[in-house]
């Protein structure tokens, strides 16, 4: 119980710090992009939008910093992250909401697949160390060292341009409206297949190698020998004794990679012109769209945080020692 309280306090503090930094950052920026923007677009912006922009960017010179800070929190809680300059003053929340599902869906699924497959392969290779299965390691390592954009372009050249199996870009066919139909789902899968495949291949090597090395360490532990001396079936020794222990360190890496889903897939989204959060961040940066950048920064921070919480929970469930150490 104490453990959970401590962790909760820790995460609450981290979240507060991240949000507060987010509050101060635009106030420390040189120049005043907002005023410039407002001047350029005078009369075309609603008074409410101006108010929220002022609050978010600290232009509310009539108010003290502390009052601004309180207002900022109020806006956050009402889900108002301001308006995006580059997207026709659409609410930042809407803009981000339209990109996030694509990124989370595609990259999330790819990350989970890569983790599950990589860890399983790694467990097996570690278990059969010294056998032919070891041959997978250099191959997988090779693919994870190839620069991603290069692999993406080659995948497009082969499977899209030459063979025509998969479309080369976008999340769905141009001209279709997103809907919950089978046809649309088919399109999404077709469009998502190459990006997902390249992501999986690119990251598989890390999972395989990490798990294999941990397995080899764990296999030398006495409890594995005991399990064998007990006459347990090899599958049981492999899963319950070796792999379960070996996969613990993998979990924290997994949580970290989940955290980077939103922010870390820019290259993929560029190569495949995929309408995700990474591409959005790039657009926002080039357009100097500060509200959007700020909103994305907040979302990215919070996902990293949530991923860490998940890792903590998973660790506490899987490793009884963590629970006790803190108690």
């Amino acid at each position: 119980m104490r453990f959970f309280l401590r962790r909760t306090a820790f995460y609450a503090f981290t979240a507060w710090a991240a949000i507060t930094i987010n509050f101060f950052l635009p106030r420390m920026m040189k120049g005043d992009p907002v005023s410039a923007y407002l001047q350029k677009n005078q009369g075309r912006i609603s008074p409410e939008a101006i108010d929220s922009l002022r609050t978010l960017f600290g232009l509310d010179s009539t108010k003290s910093l502390f009052e601004q800070y309180i207002d900022y929190w109020q806006l956050l809680f009402s889900g108002d992250l301001g308006r995006s300059f580059s997207k026709g003053l659409a609410p930042v929340t809407d803009v981000i909401a339209s990109a996030i599902p694509w990124t989370v869906g595609l990259v999330g699924i790819a990350t989970v697949i890569s983790f599950v497959v990589g860890t399983s392969i790694g467990a097996y290779i570690g278990w059969r160390r010294g056998s032919k299965a070891d041959g997978i390691v250099p191959v997988a390592t090779f693919f994870s060292t190839v620069p991603y954009f290069w692999m993406g372009l080659i995948a497009i050249a082969i499977f899209s341009t030459t063979l025509g199996w998969f479309p080369a870009s976008h999340a769905y066919d141009k001209g279709t409206q997103p809907s919950f139909t089978l046809e649309f789902a088919g399109q999404v899968i077709q469009h998502g297949f190459l990006p997902a495949l390249t992501l999986v291949i690119g990251s598989l090597g890390g999972w395989i190698l990490g798990m294999r090395n941990m397995m080899i360490t764990v296999l030398d532990e006495d409890y594995v020998t005991v399990a064998q001396a007990k006459g347990l079936k090899p599958s049981r020794v492999l899963v319950n004794y070796a792999a379960r222990n070996a996969s613990l360190p993998q979990l924290s890496s997994f949580a970290m990679s989940l955290g980077f889903i939103v922010g870390g897939t820019l290259v993929m989204e560029l190569v495949f012109s995929y309408p995700g959060a990474g591409k959005l961040l790039l657009d926002a940066t080039t357009a100097k769209d500060y509200p959007l950048m700020q909103g994305l920064f907040l979302v990215i921070t919070l996902t990293v945080l949530v991923a860490n919480i998940l890792a903590d929970v998973a660790y506490a469930i899987l490793d009884p020692r963590t629970r006790q150490m803190e108690a």
Binding site: V226, A227, A229
Partner: peptide, 24 residues
Amino acid sequence: MRAFRWEKASMVFQGAMNALNPII
């Protein structure tokens, strides 16, 4: 061999710490 192990001959190891699986 698996059927023989533990049924006919069991073992006790040194590891006061390591002979038991820490997570089950």
